[in-house]
């Protein structure tokens, strides 16, 4: 894809995450471990879609970036197959053992090298849900950020961003550079990899960035994660006619003094 000088340079940040529906628990110790399945983080897929929607409407060059172990390459291949122009892998094998702030600073260093106008990222990750890396990249680069983004418009290089806050819908105007954290995938901006795209993606070179000792020690020590006890041991009504089931529920609500 050719890039006009006026086009925005967009980085879209992707995290490869474990499939959180595949957590297994050791019945003796209650220690939790993850399955082997790895997927593209849900909100990051929305961010890829929004980046490509911006490219289609206003012109842009889109680079997907991930920081993680070598197998994170798979989410970059998926992003390329979906239509992003290029991809970069930041080699960070133990990415879940480093602080979010460290990850943010490592990614910020890479972002600064390429003079991006815009960084898009998902609102948070499926696994750790901290939502910190986006704002912390913005802070490290002294950029603005907007979270919970639902739509992005570009007018004369001014960004008009819609967000869905707690009690309001907001429109925010800012000039690039900025970090935008994407909340929702509008139907018109959702993208899926095509077969042709997948074949083309495999032919692309994905540069690997070595951060060396960049990670450093963490100031946070994690205990071994254990499964949350989730046995409500509740009453389950199965196969009863609707009126009867409803009646039993009402009797139970009364018994519990909930009505």
């Amino acid at each position: 894809m050719s890039t006009a000088p006026s086009d925005l340079k967009i980085a879209v940040l992707i995290k490869q995450v474990p499939d959180i529906n595949e957590v297994t628990v050791d019945p003796a110790t209650r220690y939790a471990s993850l399955g082997s399945a790895r997927v593209m983080n849900t909100y990051d897929a929305y961010a890829v879609g929004e980046a490509l929607a911006i490219r289609d409407r206003f012109g842009a060059h889109v680079t997907a970036i991930t920081a993680g172990p070598p197998e994170s390459r798979n989410v970059l291949l998926r992003a390329l197959a979906t239509g992003v122009d290029e991809a970069i892998l930041i080699d960070l094998p133990h990415h879940n053992d480093v602080e979010s702030l460290t990850t943010a600073r490592i990614i910020a260093t890479e972002v600064a090298k390429h003079e991006f106008d815009l960084v898009l990222a998902g609102q948070s990750s499926d696994d750790y849900e901290s939502g910190q890396v986006g704002p912390q990249i913005a802070e490290t680069l002294n950029w603005s950020h907007v979270s919970l983004v639902t739509h992005v418009d570009v007018r004369d290089r001014l960004l008009i961003v819609n967000r869905d806050a707690e009690a309001s819908k907001e429109t925010i105007e800012l000039s690039p550079p900025a970090v935008l954290m994407v909340l929702s995938g509008r139907e018109e901006s959702q993208r899926f990899p095509s077969l042709k795209g997948m074949i083309a993606a495999k032919k692309k070179t994905i540069p690997v960035v070595d951060v060396g000792e960049g990670a450093g020690p963490s100031r946070l020590e994690w205990s071994v994660p254990t499964a949350v006890e989730r046995e409500a041991d509740g009453i389950i009504v199965h196969g009863a006619p609707a009126e009867e089931a409803a009646g039993q529920l009402i009797a139970w609500l009364k018994e519990q003094k909930l009505i």
Partner: peptide
């Protein structure tokens, strides 16, 4: 959701909920 439910009804909500509303 049934694993954490104190009271669960396995059924079609479009049958159960109107019945529930009517009885309430």
């Amino acid at each position: 959701i049934f694993k954490i439910a104190s009271f669960g009804i396995v059924g079609d909500l479009f049958d159960v909920v109107p019945a529930l509303i009517a009885q309430l």
